[in-house]
């Protein structure tokens, strides 16, 4: 009996080592990104980096504001496009879809989530870029808008699945109460169910924003990669992530340029971690509300 107990402790200890791996990796990532990035601020001030709009590595100018603005614009556009569609589809799945329709739409959404970002990029590179060029009659379709459209497609599955979950977790009583008052399906949906599921839906949107800011491959292929402050959605631009991807090859290791690229990575990294925490807070709070 005594021996078995020991075996159990050994296995437990080994598994504990396994289970702190995720934490260790996370800390290592923070350490290495900070270690790679922070030396930049010996040469360039934080405000010059965040607010400057001249990015000329050869001259030691590292103003990243145009990348930050482009990343925010792209994300904003993607959210604007995908939220109405995503929530509608979630409501459809949660409330009105008959069994056969669910059996088609759900697998389709899973598949959308599973398609590699580089394939979306190749698709967008030709289809979406031409669509934007013809529709808006601009010289090149490689714009912020094209990147927003492809990102909107990529984040739809996140928004749909999280919204659907939170709509389905609204207590039955809410719905029955609404029907008992004579409300139609639609009135119940938009006056009762969606507002009640609100915090959960917002959590999903925040998570999707994080995904959009961090996405690289699909964006770099369609955004035009012009290092200039974008004036609107129909301008080309370059995001934080695409700048890293495009310039890492030419940056000398440990040079100021190299440090600056790590700092570009630091921006979405911090934003995304913040959003992830916020999103999971909201989800927990939402669940507690109905429990």
């Amino acid at each position: 009996m005594k021996k078995l107990f020991d075996q159990e402790r050994v296995v437990g200890a080994a598994l504990m080592v396994f289970s702190i791996t995720a934490l260790v990796i996370l800390l290592l990532i923070m350490l290495f990104i900070l270690d790679g990035g922070l030396p930049l601020f010996n040469k360039v001030s934080v405000s010059d980096f965040l607010l400057g709009d001249k990015w000329v590595p050869a001259k030691g100018l590292f103003g990243a504001s145009q990348f930050i603005v482009a990343a925010l614009l792209v994300t904003f556009g993607a959210i604007l496009l995908s939220v109405p569609l995503g929530i509608s589809c979630a409501v459809f799945l949660a409330e009105i879809a008959p069994g056969w329709a669910k059996r088609i739409v759900r697998p389709a959404i899973e598949l959308l989530a599973g398609i590699p970002s580089i394939i979306y990029g190749v698709f967008a590179l030709i289809i979406i870029v031409s669509l934007v060029r013809v529709t808006f009659n601009v010289a090149t379709g490689e714009t912020i808008l094209a990147a927003s459209i492809v990102l909107a497609i990529m984040i739809l599955p996140i928004i749909i699945s999280i919204s659907q979950d939170s709509i389905e977790s609204v207590p039955r009583l809410y719905k029955e109460g609404s029907y008992a008052l004579g409300a139609t399906d639609w009135q119940t949906i938009h006056r009762v169910l969606v507002p009640a599921a609100g915090p959960g839906i917002v959590a999903g949107i925040i998570l999707a924003m994080g995904r959009a800011i961090g996405e690289t491959m699909a964006v770099v292929l369609v955004i035009g990669n012009v290092e200039k402050m974008p004036a609107g959605l129909l301008d080309p631009g370059e995001t934080l992530t695409s700048a890293i991807l495009l310039e890492m090859g030419e940056a000398v290791v440990k040079s100021t340029h190299y440090n600056a690229l790590f700092c570009l990575g630091l921006v979405p990294f911090i934003l995304v971690l913040f959003m992830s925490v916020l999103s999971s807070r909201l989800t927990t709070k939402n669940k507690a509300r109905f429990a």
């Binding site: 934490l23 990104i33 800011i213 890293i244 990294f269 992830s276």
Partner: peptide
């Protein structure tokens, strides 16, 4: 453990690239 796993899941893929590189 769960929070760090969730946070790791949120790390942008290009940041993994920078991390792996260094």
């Amino acid at each position: 453990i769960r929070t760090s796993s969730d946070a790791l899941n949120a790390v942008p893929s290009i940041v993994f690239g920078l991390f792996g590189l260094s």
